[in-house]
Structure formats: C-alpha cells, structure tokens
Amino acid sequence: MSEHIRRAEQALIDQFGDSDEEIGIASAPGRVNLIGGHTDYNEGFVLPAAIDRRTVIVGRPRDDDVVNLYSLSLDEQRSISLEDRDRDGETNWSDYVIGVFDRLVERGYEPGGMDLAIAGNVPIGAGVSSSAALEVAAATAIDSIAGLGLPKEEIAKTAWEAETQFVGVGCGIMDQFAATFSEADSALFLDCRSETFDLVPVDSERARILVVDTGVQHDLVEDGHNERVRQCQEGVEAFDRLADESVSSLRDVSAELFDEYADDLPETIRKRCRHVLAENERVKEAVEALESGDLETVGALMCASHESLRDDYETSCDELDLVVELATEHDGVLGARMTGSGFGGSVVSLVDPDAVDDVEETIRTAYRAETGIDPEIYVCEPAAGATEVPLEADIDVRSD
C-alpha cells in the first residue's frame, strides 16, 4: 500500500500544486462475497470478505467549495463545486466520490472543498466492488481531512447512499459494510435487515481465496441488476397480497409460505424468489461450517450457490460458468462461484494452498484456449476494512 500512497501524494502535487495544508490519507479494500448472492437488497444474509486489494485516497482541504479529483489509474481529472453536484451524462468513476460529498451535504455535514488524488489496485468491473472501495475510501478521507468525526456506521451508510441515491444502483449494504468493518483473517457474516454482523474466522493455512477475472465487463446501472431488484419487489408484493401476514421483503417469506403460493407466481418471479430463500439458508450453513472448520461443506455450498445464480437468478454468463467448471474439476478446489452482481466479472474459489499454482495455471491455460482472453488471477487473503493512514506510516492491511 505504501507505493500507492507515495504515488497519490506525488499526483496530488503534480495535478493541483504544492500547499501548506495538512494531507489526509485513507484506504478501503475491495471484497469477494464467499456466499450470499443478491440477498443483501432483499434484507437477507451475506458472507463477504475484504481482500488485500485497496483504493487509496490522498487529499487536503481547500478554502473554497471546489472539489478537485484525479484518478491515477485512469489519468483523468474532474472538478465540481459543492453547490453544483448534479450528475451530468453517463456514470463515471468520479460520480462515486461526488456522491459521497452530496450525501454528506444532504445529511447536514460541511465537508468543504478538497483536492483528492486516487490510486490503488482494486480491479474495476471485476465484481470485487471497486465502487464501494472508492466510496468508503472517499468517506474516510473526507472525514479525516474535514474533521467531521463520522462513526464507522455513518461512513458505511453514506457510501451506500452515494451508490444507491446518487449513482442509482439498487444495491444492498453488503459492499459498503464489508469495505468498512472487515478484519484480517475473517469473513463478515452480515444480517442486512438488522445491519448487525459477526466476524467468522477464515483459515488461510487451509484454504486460499483465488479470484479469476473473466475479463467480461458490466455496468450495474444499465444491466440486469436493477431488473432483478424490481423482480424481487414484484415477488414481495405478490406474497403480501396472497398471504395472511405482512410481507415487506423476501426475508419475511418462509419456506412454507413459498411452497404454498409458488404456483401462483409468474415463473420468472418464482425462480428469483426461490434463489433468495435458498441462498439465505446456504449462508447460514456456510457460517456454521466455517466455524467448525468444515471447509469441504463451505465449498459445496459455494457450488450450489453458483448453480442457483445461474439457473434461478440468471445472472451468470458463459465465461463465469466456464471458470467455475474449470475450477471445480480440479482436485485442489474446494468450491467456486461467481462473485458480485454477475453478468460478467469474477469467480471466487477456495483452494488448497498447496494446489494454488497448479489451479491458477490450469484455469489460465484452458480459459485462454476457449475464449482467447488471458484472465487476471489474484490470490487473496482476508484483509482489514477502511482505515485512516497516519503520515509516514506503513501499516499492515495485507496489501501490496
């Protein structure tokens, strides 16, 4: 991480000039979701883990209301006034940061103008939530620079509002909570209704997290993600109408209630609801298995999750299915599934540490032969969530 901090500090000076103002530094991680696909916005259960790929923001205050942003990875700059925060045109990276400023202002805070430089190594469009890493890093940096004194819950909620209310993605709270509250060597068992969580140990000596980026990009605002949100809401409205009890989300639908009224639902809505209900149970079973050290069961549940996402939720694609097939055919892989919203992005696998190199080479060779794409593959460890970084410090957040 220290390399990214140095590059961002230099970019801050190169792009916006030198200054005597004190610099603030913050970082936040990407994440994989071990299990719990599309349950978060249905007030269900999820089991994400932050990974040792991070977004770093270095910034300083200004004496006006101008916000200057610069992305090193994209070599792009944008400037806005806090008085004029409206989105203009198609979604781009800067909207996720401007959205954080917007929501803070709407919540009654006064962040003031800033110069911010952004660096890091969270893959974009790979299904490891680069957007949440950027939002949470931005909220943490703004809090540090402006001295707002935000509790962690406020940072996560502000970041979530930036994505849902400003950018317009109908996501749940999982990504922002994972980027904020995760701890090293652990997954985050999150109840998305109560917004409470427990840390569940992940034994990196027995299983490594392997992320394979298919190279298939997605745009969450324009693809099928928001359609799935609407379909789940249609299911909620149907159960609320049919049942004798109040149903405000799919979390309220029991297995018995689903079985009683499933045939009254349109086929597509029935499939979406069936996935969500079964996935919630898989998450709870995976937590119990992790806590007892039963990694084989965790792997089997991950595979079942992918099959459900593929067949009932229909958010997979040929490339994701190919990687899961290649992974699970290898004896060293405990389980594999798509991670993120789907329609492209990445597959996450739990792999025997002794087999990591061979699994990586096997998948890379076969995937390249089938698709012509040389996939990006990352071996990850569960990492810490968002942090302010003291000047001159080189803290251990499990990143390179």
Rank of each mutant, 00 (worst) to 15 (best):
residue 3 E to S: 13
residue 5 I to L: 09
residue 7 R to N: 10
residue 9 E to I: 04
residue 11 A to S: 15
residue 18 D to V: 06
residue 25 I to W: 04
residue 27 S to R: 12
residue 28 A to Y: 02
residue 30 G to M: 04
residue 31 R to W: 13
residue 36 G to D: 06
residue 38 H to N: 13
residue 42 N to S: 12
residue 47 L to S: 10
residue 49 A to V: 01
residue 53 R to C: 01
residue 62 R to D: 03
residue 64 D to V: 07
residue 66 V to S: 14
residue 69 L to T: 01
residue 73 S to D: 15
residue 73 S to Q: 15
residue 78 R to D: 05
residue 81 S to M: 05
residue 85 R to G: 03
residue 90 E to A: 14
residue 93 W to L: 09
residue 99 G to C: 14
residue 102 D to G: 10
residue 121 N to T: 10
residue 124 I to H: 03
residue 125 G to T: 11
residue 125 G to M: 04
residue 126 A to K: 08
residue 128 V to K: 01
residue 128 V to D: 05
residue 132 A to C: 12
residue 136 V to C: 00
residue 138 A to M: 08
residue 139 A to N: 07
residue 142 I to L: 12
residue 142 I to S: 05
residue 143 D to L: 11
residue 146 A to C: 09
residue 155 I to A: 04
residue 155 I to F: 06
residue 156 A to D: 00
residue 157 K to C: 01
residue 165 Q to F: 08
residue 169 V to C: 09
residue 174 M to K: 01
residue 174 M to E: 00
residue 175 D to M: 07
residue 175 D to F: 09
residue 177 F to G: 02
residue 179 A to P: 06
residue 183 E to P: 02
residue 191 D to A: 12
residue 194 S to R: 15
residue 198 D to T: 04
residue 198 D to K: 01
residue 200 V to L: 03
residue 203 D to H: 14
residue 213 D to P: 05
residue 216 V to F: 00
residue 219 D to C: 05
residue 219 D to S: 15
residue 223 D to M: 00
residue 223 D to Y: 00
residue 226 N to M: 10
residue 231 Q to K: 10
residue 233 Q to P: 00
residue 233 Q to R: 14
residue 235 G to Q: 09
residue 238 A to W: 04
residue 247 V to P: 02
residue 250 L to N: 07
residue 252 D to K: 03
residue 253 V to M: 09
residue 254 S to H: 10
residue 255 A to Q: 13
residue 258 F to G: 08
residue 262 A to M: 00
residue 262 A to V: 04
residue 264 D to N: 14
residue 264 D to L: 11
residue 276 V to T: 03
residue 281 E to Y: 10
residue 283 V to T: 11
residue 283 V to Y: 04
residue 284 K to C: 03
residue 289 A to R: 06
residue 293 G to K: 11
residue 298 V to I: 12
residue 299 G to T: 05
residue 300 A to L: 06
residue 302 M to K: 11
residue 302 M to W: 05
residue 308 S to F: 03
residue 309 L to Q: 11
residue 311 D to R: 12
residue 311 D to I: 02
residue 312 D to C: 03
residue 313 Y to C: 10
residue 313 Y to Q: 08
residue 318 D to C: 07
residue 319 E to L: 04
residue 322 L to E: 15
residue 322 L to N: 09
residue 324 V to T: 10
residue 326 L to S: 04
residue 334 L to N: 04
residue 335 G to Q: 14
residue 341 S to Y: 05
residue 343 F to D: 01
residue 344 G to E: 01
residue 344 G to D: 07
residue 348 V to Q: 05
residue 349 S to K: 01
residue 349 S to G: 06
residue 359 V to L: 09
residue 360 E to H: 02
residue 361 E to W: 01
residue 362 T to H: 15
residue 363 I to W: 13
residue 365 T to F: 01
residue 365 T to H: 06
residue 374 D to Y: 05
residue 375 P to N: 06
residue 375 P to E: 06
residue 375 P to Q: 11
residue 386 A to M: 07
residue 387 T to C: 05
residue 394 D to I: 07
